[in-house]
Amino acid sequence: MTKRSVLVVLFDDVQSLDVTGPVEVFVGASESLPHPGGYEIRTASLGGAPVLTSSGLRIVPDGSLEDAPAPHTLLVPGGEGVGRPDPRLVDRLRAHASRAERIVSVCTGAFLLAEAGLLDGRRATTHWAYCDRLARKHPAVDVDPDPVFVRDGEVVTSAGVTAGIDLALALVEEDLGREVADQIARHLVVFLRRPGNQAQFSAQLAAQTAKREPLREVQRWIAEHPGGDLSVESLAVRARLSPRHFARTFRSETGMTPGRYVERVRLEHARRLLEHTGDGVQEISRACGYGTPEAMRRAFVRTLGSAPTEYRRRFRPLDIG
């Protein structure tokens, strides 16, 4: 089996975990194979100079970006250094990307890809805290703040920091099969290997906290009673507002409609029950306010791309004992 070459781009103030997380996955996959194959990792910087990560760790690259051969996978990590990219680095990224079969960014590495024009007209993501900034700075990029990672053709972008491990595991599964990816996940003691379209964070974090106490109380009530009557009319009564005023105010203060917020809370609660309990799908659907297993199935397929039973099978906590 021919090894797939992975070129990891290094620069000053890179986030060290954006580099080491994916590298550990790729190296582990190679070592797990019963025959030569997997990945050949090469790190490179401008001129081959050592780089200092944002945490103070010094990394000595394997060589220079100028002399690096064309890679199968070009991996661009993020970090504070993306805020002041060297034009020579952007030029080298553009040159390597033109020859790579797959272009990958971790966290804010998406800013470097965007700077090189590699995300124009494409759907992409980055760390949730920087999605708005990426969209403002590069309006030609279709920024999606929700997923853990996004694939658009040969370009794959991921969310913040540890999402790079999720992305690398997904690429290993694509290249070498699910069995190898699961084995590496167990070795790294990854608690939950997340699907790419899973939300980066919980509904409570995704939405802003309302300024008014009645609306904050409604948010708490929704989180604590996902199986209850969470219609706009019922929640408006709890907030002591008319349904129309409640819906308008809730969206204004949280950045999310009541229906969308309820949908996220219910899905999040259902996922936790599937991951951590042996409760049946019918029981979970009732506990989470879906009413029927079919309603929950539709919500899972629409949002996560898999039915509840498949989600439980693939993304339950890994047995590493």
Results as ranks from 00 to 15, higher is better:
Ala168Pro: 02
Ser98Leu: 05
Pro34Glu: 12
Ile103Gly: 01
Gly47Phe: 14
Ile165Gln: 01
Arg286Leu: 09
Cys131Asn: 07
His276Glu: 15
Glu233Gly: 03
His269Lys: 13
Val14Tyr: 01
Glu80Tyr: 11
Val9Leu: 02
Gln200Phe: 05
Val155Trp: 05
His35Pro: 00
Gly109Ser: 07
Arg266Thr: 10
His225Met: 10
Leu318Val: 07
Ala110Thr: 01
Phe11Lys: 11
Tyr39His: 08
Glu154Trp: 11
Ala70Ile: 03
Thr53His: 11
Val265Thr: 10
Ser231Met: 06
Asp146Lys: 14
Pro36Arg: 15
Ala181Pro: 10
Pro214Met: 12
Arg42Asp: 00
Arg99Ala: 12
Ser158Met: 06
Asp175Cys: 02
Pro147Thr: 08
Pro85Met: 06
Arg133Cys: 00
Val60Tyr: 04
Tyr39Lys: 13
Ala159Glu: 06
Thr126Asp: 01
Arg240Thr: 08
Pro77Asp: 03
Arg178Asp: 11
Leu118Ala: 01
Gly48Trp: 09
Gly280Trp: 02
Arg271Glu: 14
Ala116Val: 07
Val82Gln: 15
Thr53Ile: 09
Ala114Met: 07
Pro147Ile: 01
Asp175Arg: 02
Gln219Ile: 11
Tyr261Thr: 05
Pro50Asp: 05
Val90Glu: 13
Glu224Gly: 10
Leu74Arg: 02
Ile41Leu: 03
Arg58Thr: 14
Pro71Asp: 08
Arg92Ser: 05
Asp91Val: 04
Pro214Phe: 10
Val172Asp: 03
Arg220Met: 11
Arg212Tyr: 09
Thr254Arg: 09
Asp142Pro: 00
Leu274Gly: 00
His245Trp: 09
Leu7Ile: 00
Val150Met: 09
Leu10Trp: 03
Val156Gln: 10
Leu10Gly: 06
Glu263His: 13
Asp146Pro: 00
Gly280Thr: 05
Ile320Glu: 11
Thr73Lys: 02
Glu31Phe: 07
Phe26Ile: 09
Leu7Asn: 06
Arg316Ile: 11
Ala170Leu: 13
Ser306Arg: 14
Gln183Asp: 07
Ala124Thr: 05
Leu74Val: 00
Val156Pro: 07
Gly79Ile: 03
Arg238Asp: 09
Ala239Ser: 04
Ala239His: 07
Arg84Asp: 10
Arg286Asp: 06
Ala163Tyr: 12
Met296Gln: 12
Leu33Asn: 09
Thr249Lys: 15
Ala114Val: 01
Pro226Gly: 05
Asp67Arg: 13
Arg248Lys: 15
